[in-house]
Nucleic acid binder design. Structure first.
Lengths: 206, 206
DNA sequence: TGTATTTTGTAACGATCGAAATAATATAAG
DNA sequence: CTTATATTATTTCGATCGTTACAAAATACA
């Protein structure tokens, strides 16, 4: 009766760690130090886990890295996107997108700056197998998700029928990369915030 | 009479390498693999130099890295800037800037993709001492150099007196970061080129 | 021709890397 | 209470890391 579900209790010594929490901790380390800059000691320390437990749960360092990328792409990277999709008015939505992007890149709870994908993972494109594909997918998915929200604003009459949704979606994405790079370098969030109004106008200009 | 100038011939066994060429080779390795991903073996192989010679000429790995950053900032990073400053007509100039940026990020002679500063050095911000400052300086210098060219277009009457030169300079820079990220991920240059006309209009819109 | 000087190539250093072997420990099932 | 199972913690591995010691080689100068 219970053979397909996982029972709440399993045989053997129980794990001391939570998989998601450990993965989030690993992502923070990779984000701050990069793939090669993050040693297994850095990782196990931050994750509160032993070497063998890490290998049993996540495979080797490269597999852990890719899991961390997936974790980021389906959680953190979406925060500005969610802000954009949630705000009903399109102008407010674009503003919320940039505001969230800047805040996120400057003051992430992990202490890391910039964007994990743009500021750390990008370095390993062409070095770690499969990273190129993960990055391309993340970029194109974001383009389309941004475009979808813009298109719905067109459908609702908030934007003219001729509005180039996909082009402006890419524009939003690329502008975000600029903010992200500046934040990684340590430039102030306030200075970037001052540019938001102008950029909202640029994105929505007819 | 010759004591302040360097004589053409020096005492001792002559060097087998050219400093600038070796530094350029080192930059390519750091660009492709990142600071931590580039081993001393990778570096000496690419530079055609021995370990001890490298240390004598450039100091340790970190010093070599910073020299490579300086080398890039005062040479390669300027290519799109120079294109922008050289083209007489402002619209052609903006187009040339983006075209050069995309070409450079997609087909650099070294085989590296993206931008050394944005795609590799950014990862070491906060990890390698002094990198933050180098990055901030490179960003702000570029902002101002772009703004200077826009201002001269205003002065010549190509752009209206109310044109927000510095804001649009930052806009150009940040859009470039998007192209650079896409190129690093492996997206096609042609797809990016197709966006240029629209972005030229965005940058110069009144 | 011999000496001083500089760079070269080789070899080696201790430290740390990612990864795994081993054994102790903590649970569920019989 | 014993057995089977799964995770823990410790230890260790060979490889590679960045760096340096050392001696041979190649030049200018006396």
């Amino acid at each position: 009766m219970n053979d397909t579900k996982n029972s709440t209790k399993k045989v053997g010594r129980p794990k001391k760690f939570n998989r998601d929490e450990a993965l989030t901790a690993a992502m923070s380390v990779f984000w701050k130090r990069g793939f090669d800059g993050a040693s297994m000691k850095n990782l196990t320390d931050a994750m509160g886990i032993n070497g063998p437990s890490l290998y049993a749960e996540f495979g080797d360092k490269e597999a852990l890295y890719k899991s961390a990328i997936d974790c980021y792409a389906s959680n953190d990277a979406c925060a500005p996107l969610v802000a954009f999709e949630t705000e009903p008015n399109i102008e407010d939505a674009v503003r919320a997108f940039f505001t969230a992007a800047i805040n996120y890149a400057s003051d992430h709870e992990s202490g890391a700056r910039g964007c994990f994908l743009a500021s750390s993972v990008a370095t390993t494109a062409g070095c770690v197998e499969g990273v190129d594909e993960l990055l391309c997918k993340a970029i194109l998915d974001t383009d389309h998700r941004l475009a979808f929200r813009l298109q719905s604003a067109i459908d609702k009459g908030e934007l003219p029928p001729t509005f180039p949704a996909l082009e402006r979606a890419r524009l939003m994405f690329d502008l975000r990369q600029g903010f992200v790079f500046r934040a990684r370098a340590g430039l102030s969030a306030d200075a970037m915030m001052a540019d938001i109004d102008q950029r909202v106008r640029v994105v929505l200009a007819e």
